[in-house]
Amino acid sequence: MDPIIRVEDLEKHFGDLQVLRGVSLDVEPGEVIVIFGRSGSGKSTLLRCVNFLEEPTGGCIEVDGVRMEAARHVLRARREQVRQIRMKAGMVFQDFNLFPHLSVIENLIEAPCVVKKESKGEAREFGLQLLDKVGLAEKADEYPIRLSGGQKQRVAIARALCMRPKIMLFDEPTSALDPELVAEVLEVMRDLAKEGMTMMVVTHEMGFAREVASRMVFLHEGKVLEEGKPADLISGARDERTRRFLEAVL
């Protein structure tokens, strides 16, 4: 099968600071890739390059057939291509980023209505299905500020899913949560993986990784230092630095 995400020799500079130093990674449809590594190793940057919240400064990214080389200038045509990619790639952030002026269901249907011009009724019906799926059907008309962190993150996941994406990007989705709320979010993500969603997840939840990931990628100073199946990597990392990091988080 053709990979649905292709990252080739990806580089990212912030001014003089080079954060990604040639990252290559193919993701097959239905795979769940867990990315882990030290703070500052470039995990978020890698994820944010996949949907072009950051513009790569070198290399190439392909998402579901839309191929984009790094470019110096972001012109109109490129912006349109970026939007095509973003519509295929849902993203979930560490701190939820819900729209506080909209109710939960309005948060979900905003993008389908505005971006895809779906009718309100149609979007709402799908939105309510998704809320049911993440266990928040009764919160549809609540405002985000009235939700717990775990509920907020589940709404954020449903909001991304409401665009019917082909891949989902998760950047430390449980890091901002109180420990007792982590499980409910991981549960939703686990279900999503079971349904065959392609996922790239930055997380240090090794239990989740072991159970759900098809592959784990250890990022170190902007490079993929090691990758492999969770069982192999967690118990038998080849590189000393990977081992040390795993010891620290396990």
Binding site: N51, L53, R79, R83, R86, M87, A89, G90, M91, F93, N97, L98, F99, E110, A111, V114, V115, K116, A156, R159, A160, M163
Partner: peptide, 9 residues
């Protein structure tokens, strides 16, 4: 960023 990530211009 969330709005952009959802494809909004």
């Amino acid at each position: 960023e969330a709005a952009h990530a959802l494809g909004m211009t």
